[in-house]
Simulated scan of single mutants.
Amino acid sequence: MDTFRDFALTPFVSRCIVAGREVIARLDSADSALYAKHSLGAGGDVSIGADLEAQKIFVRHLLPIAHIDSEESGFIPSSQGISDIILLDPLDGSDNFLSHIPYYGASVALCDAHRICKEAVVIDFCAQRLIARSGDTILEYSLRDSSPRAIKPYVATHSHTPKCGIFEKAYSNPHIAARLFANGLKFRSLGASALSFSLAHKVSFMLFVGSIREYDSKAGLYLCEGLYINQSRDFVLISKDKQIFATIMQLLTQGKD
């Protein structure tokens, strides 16, 4: 049995691949409408044209297989008589997109009726890379080739000697940033949490401090199962390194006892 072939043909992953390529082409068009501000989205942020255009593409491809709960428009019912729900952030890192910083993508989590994740996809629109998990298999795909036959999946790589971790929201938590620095823990703050979750297998740690929405975290956390994870109301910490995980946990809880 060809595991890669079988995995690539799951309806959810296949549709995400097609939608992802279409979104990449649309965002690369440099259409001024992509940068226009619209109304407040369901997730609490003001939507821009790129958010809504990406959502439109994902909805067209994914609504036939599940209801969609999108950060931009909230619940979008499917007419197919199904119970699955897709939690969607169609453009994770909108501020990066607006600022021409090449780090933004999408978070797509296929869940059952109880919102328990069954499959997950995170797409990096700039690197044109998709990471998917179905069951116990995590794979990466290049989206650079237009033909589906050109997809070359491979097992997600694990860097053995990462130099840095990722600390999202570091700008609003300078006291924690100072503690990490004092303990020799280098980090970068990249501005797209779902993409940063998808890198947790490769970097030394991924830390998000603050309240995080399901739209941003559902798919990424599913990709990270098997790593050391602590998710609380105040932060999410992930690392493949037990010692680094324990050290940062201690830094995060300093002064709370």
Rank of each mutant, 00 (worst) to 15 (best):
M1G: 10
M1Q: 03
D2N: 12
D2T: 05
P11D: 15
S14A: 15
R15L: 15
I17F: 07
R21T: 03
V23W: 03
A30T: 07
A30C: 12
D31M: 09
L34K: 03
A36W: 00
G41Y: 02
G43R: 01
G44K: 14
D45R: 13
G49A: 14
D51V: 04
E53M: 10
I57V: 14
R60Q: 15
A66I: 14
H67F: 03
E71M: 08
E72C: 06
G74S: 14
F75D: 15
P77N: 09
S78D: 03
S79K: 10
S83N: 07
D84H: 11
I85R: 03
L87G: 04
L87Q: 05
P90S: 15
L91S: 09
L98H: 01
L98I: 04
H100A: 10
H100T: 03
I101L: 01
G105L: 06
V108Q: 01
C111Q: 05
A113L: 02
R115Q: 14
I116H: 14
I116R: 13
I116E: 14
A120C: 05
G135Q: 14
D136Q: 15
L139I: 14
L139Q: 12
L143C: 04
R144C: 06
R144H: 09
D145K: 13
R149G: 11
I151W: 05
V155G: 06
V155H: 08
T157F: 05
H158S: 14
H160V: 13
H160S: 15
P162K: 08
F167L: 10
F167T: 01
K169S: 15
A170T: 02
A170L: 06
Y171T: 12
P174A: 15
H175N: 15
H175Y: 13
A177S: 13
A177Y: 02
A178Y: 12
L180A: 04
L180P: 00
L185Y: 02
F187Y: 13
F187M: 09
R188G: 11
G191S: 01
A194N: 04
S196W: 00
S196R: 00
A200M: 07
S204Y: 00
F208Y: 11
Y215T: 06
Y215V: 07
D216M: 01
S217I: 02
K218I: 04
G220K: 01
C224I: 02
E225Q: 13
Y228N: 15
Y228L: 14
R233C: 09
R233N: 11
D234V: 06
K240Q: 03
K242N: 10
I244F: 02
F245Y: 14
T247D: 01
L251A: 07
D257A: 09
